[in-house]
Design a protein around this nucleic acid. Structure first.
Lengths: 171, 171
DNA sequence: TTGGAAAGTCAACAAGGCTGACATAAACTG
DNA sequence: CAGTTTATGTCAGCCTTGTTGACTTTCCAA
């Protein structure tokens, strides 16, 4: 009777709803704010040296994840305008980090790839970011990490959650 | 024997280190990226209507949390330059959302407060953000939420973690 | 009384968002 | 085949929010 068919482990019975107080929610909000700063801090430092920004990092990351992705697909994932993305892609292509190839089936499309140099930079950036995440995961332990992932997925917009799910398993 | 005195539940024995693979870390990184977009989406929409930005939201939030905070303290928490913060504070003061009072003990300091109008806007913004977090928490359940908080705390820079801890309990 | 901290201001600049308009090539459709 | 839609790129201009550097005012404390 108290069981309302929730998708996950949530049981909104009368027992234990203290984790839904405004105070708990505020802590979560502040934790997201402070943690995101840490999350981007290490790559940001490296990017600064190379005169790139966070936008370049995001492009490199998702091209690395989904080689041969199209510009439109990247626009969808990143949620910016094509003008914004184009500015970033242009510099990455000029600097020889990204390659753009005309589509075979549909020659209007451009498929994006990392060059060797692009892969090198992507590796440095993502390793810096992974290092912090690895330390955090190790400290918190596997069960905390599972909860971390669950909550983050629920915070996402449904449309972005789809992109996330697609990236989840291999590619 | 496998117990190495870690501060938390992590037991880096041979059993179960699969949560530390690069692939798991990548998923965490992408989850942070997508979730942060959702996290800011609702307040951003409201701010757009009022011609404010995220920087205004952050200032309102932390002045609300710590009434009578000084500009310097706020700079420390927000991690921006005083010129950047000053621009935001000036518009908030001009618009009658924030009040700045000269310090009594140290008259160089300015103590910041929300006006009634400031509190109103802060409430609208934070309630929009809490709504999404509440739904996410409810879906994920209390244990997931605990893990979520643990991992986020570990991702923070130590200095920011101190600020976070101070805000944790009342104020 | 003097040094330095706290705060504010001005100017200039950059990254990275945005809109709108327009161009081109390719693909699709009737 | 003509017309429309799609994918991409580009130009121009604007906004927010970050930055640095220089300078002033206030005023506490040694």
């Amino acid at each position: 009777m108290a069981e309302s068919g929730s998708t996950s482990a949530a049981r909104p019975g009368a027992e234990n709803l203290l984790f839904l107080t405004d105070d708990q929610l505020r802590r979560g909000i502040e934790a997201m704010f402070f943690a995101y700063r840490g999350f981007t801090a290490d790559p940001d430092r490296i990017l600064l040296e190379k005169s790139y920004g966070r936008a370049h990092h995001r492009a490199l990351h998702f091209i690395h994840r989904s080689p041969a992705t199209t510009v439109n697909n990247l626009l969808d994932i990143l949620g910016v305008t094509k003008q914004s993305l184009n500015r970033v892609l242009r510099t990455l292509i000029e600097d020889g980090l990204v390659e753009s190839k005309v589509g075979k089936r549909d020659r209007r499309e451009r498929h994006l790839f990392l060059t060797d140099a692009g892969r090198d930079l992507e590796r440095v950036l993502s390793e810096a970011q992974r290092k912090r995440m690895r330390a955090a995961y190790r400290e918190a332990g596997p069960e905390a990490v599972a909860g971390f992932q669950q909550v983050l997925q629920q915070i996402m917009d449904p449309k972005l959650r789809e992109h996330f799910e697609q990236l989840k398993d291999g590619h």
